[in-house]
């Protein structure tokens, strides 16, 4: 019975994470400007991959060893810290380089 619950939680959390990854991709393709694209992907990708990786950690904790689940959680904590930092580094570099944000009347 418990394995059904773990499977259901893993499938549910992974699908929600997949939805966030999908919205990050749509944001990357559809947004008009560099800063908008980075705004969308920076958050949605981090959250989406966070959800999928924690659900895999839960699945591993039940079916495999706890230590490996902790290592998988380490990956999710690292992505949680690293992705926004990388996004900030790119934004700062682009702004210093003089890339002007997009305004409404600019070319789409």
């Amino acid at each position: 019975m418990l394995s059904q619950i773990v499977n259901i939680i893993t499938i549910g959390l992974s699908l929600v994470g997949l939805f966030f990854l999908f919205s990050g991709t749509v944001g990357l393709l559809r947004f008009p400007d560099f800063y908008c694209r980075m705004h969308g992907t920076g958050k949605c990708d981090t959250l989406g991959s966070l959800m999928i990786i924690t659900s895999l950690a839960l699945y591993e904790a039940y079916h495999g060893s706890i230590l490996l689940a902790l290592k998988i959680l380490l990956i999710s904590v690292f992505i949680f810290l690293a992705n926004p930092t990388a996004t900030h580094a790119i934004a700062k570099a682009a702004f210093v380089c003089g890339l002007k944000p997009w305004k409404k009347e600019d070319y789409r």
Binding site: G24, L28, T41, D45, T46, N83, I90
Partner: peptide
């Protein structure tokens, strides 16, 4: 940005 998204 796209390569960063790709990597994640």
């Amino acid at each position: 940005v796209a390569v960063n998204v790709f990597g994640t």
